[in-house]
Design a protein around this nucleic acid. Structure first.
Lengths: 209, 209
DNA sequence: ACCACAATGTGAGCATTGCTTACATTAAAG
DNA sequence: CTTTAATGTAAGCAATGCTCACATTGTGGT
């Protein structure tokens, strides 16, 4: 039960994260203000500091939340696909799908705003968990398929392609550029996005013998 | 000749851009301060506003500078490679090479910090120029090679892979993560980076019939 | 050579921000 | 039920982005 007096918010931490994500989506990370978040949450300007030592850590919190969600999705995808090639491809679509649904999180997870992850052990671990799922699949492929390139190179290539797709789907700076004759790039992105499975298959076959 | 009195800086605009790039590389875009730049340039705190209406525009200026440099490099690469496949591959290495040498610029050009490009016509045009070079090569490939996929999809795939490589080479959040057993991702990136040509060839062959 | 004028830089100042420090209230544990 | 840790508040400081009124300088038209 909740006390009538709202001296204690009760869910401030998670409320701040949600509000921050919404604010970033609306106005960009550049104009995010802790005080504004506090106002929206109906709390004093200094209350947020009881949950995050500073602004950076609040942002890191969003990234951590993102990695946790991503890890969950990747794990689920991995477990529900026994065929290795199928799994490989589905992991890619899951990855890009996540980026689509959580653009703000993704941007914090892979953008340069957060700088080096070394400042937060929690962040490092959350990120490592996500990559562990991908690594596992890669390792299995190494044994179950005849690759003509080492797994490291394969991983880099695939990761590059998938990560690139995700980035483009999110940012698509071209959305504003391609208004006329130069609409090709945008269509390209849209196309590759619409037919992600085909795209990954192409990469896959470029690597396999 | 320069007047002895330095009431007028003379090169303030470009000086501010350089200083800003250095500052971002050192401390991140989050703690960039116009006043600090002014101090470093030895001018009053309000002087920068004579060259940029606001902070965002200063950042956009960096991105524009980046697109100009990139366009120049891509053009040069394109002109010095007559063979189409060779050109295709070299464009990719040039792209990633640029990202490596100008990480701050790249981050502003393709990150989410700048939001929608629609705020600056100059930015839109600078970006369009860069993509024009890639589009041209893609269009030529369509006619000189037998592709089993339309050029739009091909463009998206290649752009994704190259852009992804560039992003990873720059950010490599893993640089801090992979300190122990999970060093695989980093090696993957390093490998794909070291052997960029081979990587692009894989993609290329995945797409070609 | 002059001088009006646009370009560039200055100084003071305002609202807002991140963050600190000292204190208040509440929830939880003993 | 009391002690204590968790959580929130109030006041305040230095720094920032930006505006406005004013100063200085370079430049083009006569």
């Amino acid at each position: 039960m909740k006390s009538r007096s709202k001296y204690h918010h009760g869910e401030l931490r998670s409320a701040l994260v949600s509000l921050a994500v919404a604010e970033i989506a609306r106005a960009g990370v550049e104009k995010l203000s802790l005080r504004s978040l506090a106002r929206q949450a109906g709390v004093s300007p200094t209350a947020p500091f009881r949950h995050f030592p500073d602004k950076q850590t609040l942002l890191a919190g969003i990234a951590i939340e993102g990695f946790e969600e991503l890890t969950g999705r990747l794990t689920e995808t991995s477990e529900s696909n026994s065929d290795i090639e199928e799994r490989f491809i589905e992991l890619g679509t899951t990855y890009v799908g996540f980026a689509q649904e959580f653009p703000v999180h993704y941007q914090l997870m892979f953008g340069a705003v957060l700088g080096d992850f070394s400042t937060s052990k929690e962040l490092q671990e959350a990120a490592a968990s996500s990559y562990a799922v991908l690594d596992a699949t890669l390792a299995e492929m190494k044994h179950s398929q005849d690759l003509d390139h080492d797994v490291a190179t394969l991983g880099g290539l695939v990761w590059s392609a998938v990560h690139g797709m995700a980035s483009l789907v999110i940012n698509v700076p071209m959305a504003s550029v391609s208004t006329g004759a130069d609409a090709a790039p945008r269509q390209a992105v849209k196309s590759i996005h619409n037919d992600m499975r085909a795209g990954l298959k192409m990469v896959y076959r470029g690597v396999m013998r």
